[in-house]
């Protein structure tokens, strides 16, 4: 008995270290492991979580920390609308943390995967590495100049609120009570009870990232990755094009469905030239931004 307790203590101590690659803490006694369960049977697609997140962090237009995917199923009169809230999965074994060249991304001992803006160089390696598309580059132009720009950002599980004993903004705002947040290692917490009793799924389990966002009652068609790009509609494409036109400095980084990159760049050469500094005053402004901001 004493021996096993000692073992537990030593394991707990080992896992308590801060560090950019803190080992996974799921199920380790004496550690905290914050997780979220999303009960899709209760989700009504009101998007209040998306709005709450946007207003909590002032997330710019065109990028999201959390979003809700919507799909319509079936034929009239047997139709159904299904929802799929998405956010950073705060993996136990995050690929983004391994990939970051400047240690800007790290894993907190309590399970949060966080971003240090002062270290981020905006190389976007983590954006490419994330299998869940949970990361984004913050645009250069922001209304509040004091907020970080041109660095990679992501969902933080609202660590600033959680550490003050509050719930994340999206959980607080959820009208149906579909989002449940808590410590997975505490067997009395609601999230631990739900995850142990209900049949849950995670996204891309085959990658071995051990996500901390669990879905209850998920619809396979909306969760299935190939399905989501099989059914792209022209409306979505149009929205994407609008977004591109309104987004500064993206002449290179994006491509539009149905067009190859080179064709796209040559077709939009006018936009492209307009987006690069080609007047003397623009060049001076660009240098000023580069050096003094």
């Amino acid at each position: 008995m004493t021996e096993s307790r000692n073992d537990e203590e030593s394991t707990a101590k080992k896992h308590h270290n801060y560090g950019i690659q803190t080992p996974g803490t799921k199920g380790i006694a004496g550690t905290k492991r914050y997780a979220m369960a999303i009960d899709l049977r209760k989700c009504i697609g009101c998007m209040s979580c998306v709005v709450a997140c946007k207003s909590e962090f002032g997330t710019p237009l065109g990028v999201w920390r959390t979003w809700v995917k919507v799909a319509d199923k079936g034929h009239y009169p047997n139709t159904q609308r299904v929802f799929m809230p998405r956010l950073c999965n705060h993996c136990d074994y995050p690929i983004c943390v391994r990939n970051c060249p400047t240690q800007a991304t790290f894993k907190h001992k309590d399970g949060f995967v966080l971003q240090r803006y002062n270290r981020c160089i905006g190389c976007r390696t983590c954006v490419v590495a994330c299998p869940y598309n949970a990361r984004h580059l913050v645009p250069a132009k922001r209304t509040d100049k004091n907020l970080p720009h041109s660095v990679v950002d992501k969902c933080t599980f609202c660590i600033h609120r959680v550490k003050r004993g509050m719930l994340p903004a999206c959980v607080q705002a959820c009208v149906g009570g579909a989002r449940i947040f808590g410590d997975l290692n505490d067997p009395d917490s609601e999230v631990a009870k739900l995850v142990s009793k209900e049949p849950v799924t995670v996204l891309k389990p085959e990658l071995g990232t051990s996500p901390s966002v669990f879905y209850i009652g998920g619809d396979w068609e909306i969760m299935d990755e190939p399905h989501s790009y099989e059914n792209r509609t022209s409306q979505l494409k149009e929205e994407f094009n609008d977004f591109k036109r309104n987004h500064e400095g993206d002449a290179f980084g994006d491509i539009v469905e149905g067009e190859s990159t080179m064709y796209h760049v040559s077709k939009n050469m006018k936009d492209f030239i307009a987006s690069i500094p080609h007047k003397a005053s623009d060049v001076i402004d660009a240098f000023k931004r580069l050096l003094f901001k």
Binding site: V70, S228, T261
Partner: peptide, 22 residues
């Protein structure tokens, strides 16, 4: 068999573009 169509989604950037290919 049910058919489903994604009616709303957000768009993610292709983070590495032409400069990286070049």
């Amino acid at each position: 068999m049910n058919e489903s169509v994604i009616t709303y989604n957000v768009f993610h950037h292709v983070a590495w573009g032409t400069p990286i290919s070049i």
